[in-house]
């Protein structure tokens, strides 16, 4: 009988342990844990662009979670997003001139609202409003600024226009950098399909500082890294004449499509080498096998 009792106790312990594990999984590792606990107060903040911010996204001060996004709505009649932040009552002393910013955790992470303290003596009350906000920065704009800083995008020196025709520009778009020797020297002004010649007409704005580019230079559409954005690379030629405003670059190399590369790689076994452009980068996988 005592043996049976020990079975019963052990089995009971097992069942309790199992349910405790289930309760742990459900409450500590799932979205239930993010539900608001304890009293909170609501603060409004208006953003011009909320990017990928979602309801229940965290609100952080100095990286510490102090609340969550309660609701997101479009302000009636205006093109601004009204975001309601539910902030824990414990953090009731946020200065009224604090700045609410939409940040991204990491490069690909989720977005959250970060609050940077101001210096005001007044605190934001329940139902109050954070007047100072900074919107989410789309990655493209940030990249544009980054490349523009070293290049000619808004350089006082001005720039000159050069056109180039490509049979395929891949995902090249206006604002993509133009690089020579890997250094940004300008940007793509426009990408247009040419109705008559059935190819893409790309206009490049190159900084006036770089006016010593030979007119037989080649323009190629390259990709930075495997999944990076595309840019126009200029490979200098040997002509004594230089490119001038309005010139067209004759030698171009179109964007490499991954499918084409794989196709070439597979077909190359037959021995026919593809010397169409003569300017193929040495990185093209012309593997012999």
């Amino acid at each position: 009988m005592s043996q049976r009792k020990s079975y019963a106790v052990g089995t009971g312990l097992f069942i309790v342990l199992g349910f405790a594990a289930l309760a742990y999984l459900a409450t500590q590792t799932s979205s239930v844990a993010n539900r608001q606990q304890g009293a909170s107060y609501t603060v409004d903040a208006q953003f011009e662009n909320i990017g990928q911010l979602k309801e229940r996204a965290p609100v952080k001060i100095a990286g510490v979670r102090v609340g969550q996004v309660q609701a997101i709505a479009l302000e009636p009649g205006k093109s601004v997003a009204d975001v309601k932040l539910a902030i824990d009552k414990r953090y009731a002393d946020i200065p009224a001139d604090s700045v609410a910013t939409i940040f991204t955790s990491g490069l690909l992470g989720d977005q959250y609202v970060g609050i940077e303290y101001g210096h005001s003596k007044d605190h934001v009350a329940d139902g109050g409003k954070l007047a100072l906000t900074r919107s989410s920065e789309p990655l493209e704009e940030m990249l544009g600024k980054f490349f523009g800083a070293g290049g000619a995008a808004d350089n006082i020196g001005g720039s000159y226009m050069v056109t180039a025709r490509f049979s395929n520009v891949g995902s090249l778009s206006a604002g993509s950098p133009v690089k020579m020797a890997g250094v940004p020297i300008g940007q793509v002004l426009s990408v247009q399909a040419e109705p008559a010649k059935l190819d893409a007409l790309v206009t490049l704005a190159i900084d006036n500082r770089y006016n010593q580019i030979p007119d037989d230079s080649a323009a190629a559409v390259f990709t930075s890294g495997l999944i990076g954005s595309q840019y126009v690379a200029i490979q200098p030629g040997g002509s004594p004449d230089m490119l001038k405003n309005g010139d067209e670059m004759i030698l171009t190399q179109s964007a490499m499509q991954l499918e084409d590369l794989i196709g070439k790689f597979l077909v190359n076994g037959s021995g026919s080498s593809d010397g169409k452009q003569g300017a193929n980068p040495p990185t093209s996988p012309a593997g012999k096998h």
Partner: peptide, 23 residues
């Protein structure tokens, strides 16, 4: 430690993952 748990709690759904998966 914080991102480990907050990413987990932000993504795992009680019904989709725990009830229909585990249970």
């Amino acid at each position: 430690n914080g991102t480990f748990w907050s990413n987990m709690t932000a993504t795992v759904d009680v019904w989709q993952d725990i009830v229909s998966g585990v249970v």
